[in-house]
């Protein structure tokens, strides 16, 4: 069931497009679902399909086409490290390795306490700030030296009361 508050957020997105083009709001609505639930479940896809008046398979196509939609649950904090060439030249790859060691998980993995998922990603559009990490799709962290990576992980852990 879509909650009242979620529905209000959906309505705001749908209002941007012509009445017969509700489908245009699918990307924004799914980003909202992901922010609220952590990933896009089959159930959410079905609800969105009904809400937007589009086939469920068309919603699923969108989930699977765009890199940022989580098709399965991830850790509480999803860390995406850019390792594309411009970042690689400024230690983007090293940042990924450093986090692998610090978190004790390989790229693509999730820590056993469910706190962190670590992923490599393509250009975030912040190349001059390398190394850059996108946290939970919405927070770009720039100039992430090893020191700052420590700070980021440690502060998030203590903010969650697990220091």
């Amino acid at each position: 069931m879509i909650s009242e508050t979620t529905l209000a957020r959906f309505e705001r997105e749908v209002a941007k497009y012509p009445a017969e083009q509700r489908q245009s709001a699918v990307m924004a609505c799914m980003a909202i679902v992901q922010q609220e639930q952590g990933f896009i479940s089959e159930e959410s896809e079905a609800e969105l399909a009904a809400y937007l008046g589009m086939p469920q398979i068309a919603v699923h196509e969108v989930t699977t086409f765009y890199n940022m939609y989580n098709q399965a649950p991830v850790g509480k904090y999803k860390l995406n490290v850019c390792t594309n060439l411009p970042c690689l030249l400024r230690d983007g790859g090293k940042a990924l390795e450093y986090l692998e060691k610090k978190l004790g998980i390989p790229m693509g993995g999730t820590t056993s306490d469910g706190m962190f998922t670590l992923q490599q990603c393509e250009c975030l559009g912040a190349c001059a700030d390398a190394p850059v990490i996108l946290v939970n799709d919405r927070s770009m962290c720039s100039f992430m030296s090893d020191d700052k990576l420590d700070q980021l992980v440690d502060s998030l852990r203590s903010a969650e009361g697990q220091a």
Binding site: F143, K148, S155, L156
Partner: peptide, 17 residues
């Protein structure tokens, strides 16, 4: 500190770029 505050500390301010 709240998680959102933690994250905002690392946001670029545009000074360098």
């Amino acid at each position: 500190m709240k998680p959102a505050q933690v994250l905002s500390q690392f946001q670029a301010a545009g000074l360098e770029t």
